[in-house]
Amino acid sequence: MLNSSLGPVPLQAYLVLASLLFCIGVWGLINSRNAVRVLMSIELMLNAVNINLMAFSSFLDGELIRGQVFAVFVITVAAAEAAVGLAILLSLYRNRVTVDMESFNLLRW
């Protein structure tokens, strides 16, 4: 047990879990062909970052819990991002009648 005063689960376990979640999100972000799934992958990555912040806040900064305040801000920004992203997706769908990421190559060189 690396930190017996805080219980049986060490900090490293939370960090490894968050790393796994982040990498799954990155893979999904690169490989999804449905635009909605891309947004879902972004949410997964934001959640991984939040787990990291909360773990550090609980294990290393238990007095001031600045990590929890940051997590609240990340949740706020994620909500705004989801709303705007899905609105962009809807207007994109109205213009191109598809959600395939491979067909959105207007800005590619």
Binding site: E43, I75, A79, A83, L90
Partner: peptide, 28 residues
Amino acid sequence: LNASFVAAAQVLVYVGAVNVLILFAIML
């Protein structure tokens, strides 16, 4: 991780708002 407030905010914002928004977008 001793963070009941953020857990409640997570359930309210993510499950209650973002996930429902994503479901709506899928149906649209």
